[in-house]
Amino acid sequence: MHRFANPARFTRIADRVLPFAGFGAVAALGIGFYLALFVAPADYQQGETVRIMYVHVPSAWMALFIYVAMAVASAAALIWRHPLADVAAKASSPIGAGFAFLTLVTGSLWGRPMWGTWWEWDGRLTSMLILFFLYLGHMALMHAFEDQQRGYRAAAVLALVGVINVPIIKFSVDWWATLHQPASVLRLDGPTIHSSMLWPLLITALGFKLYFVTLVLLRMKSELIAARLRALDLARLKAS
């Protein structure tokens, strides 16, 4: 993995991947939203509100996926001191926070007409709110220290401690009584959702994933330039 640690090498690879990821994201999101709005049927119980699923569920998957990716990067940073791992974690948390926020708000907009309430302090909703706060805490710690290396370390420790929340979110619908419906796609016995809804959902989710790849590569490039600017500023300070 350390072969990719060189910033110039990383930037070269990122520049090669970015056009494909960006174009793929636009295509998958375009097709996915078209299918979700015009082709997928209304639900027999939930009516047209089921269309909220096509943004709510991919957002929630991304919020969880990004957190796990961030925790893996943080472990790599703490154990192997991989220099790009810290940069990856820093680039990821604002995107994860965005998706956690979208999960909560779109869920609320779905819950109001279907459950009759915007919010309920049950296992699923509360653990998702905690995930959002973990992202905000991670972002705050990154910027809390004058020395960026200390910020990296503190944020990495938070990311690793907070990863315990991920299985809690996933299994909260099985462990506790909740308004939230149980999983209908990621189940051991296979999806229970009809294919006319499953395909639009999977294509939209692929679009979200490619959007994340595009954005995280751009943000890592940006962060590497920021690190270089910090080094240059320091060198100038010493020289003067």
Binding site: T49, I52, V105, L109, W110
Partner: peptide, 8 residues
């Protein structure tokens, strides 16, 4: 409910 969710 649907349009604000998608728009946001």
């Amino acid at each position: 409910f649907v349009w604000p969710a998608l728009g946001l």
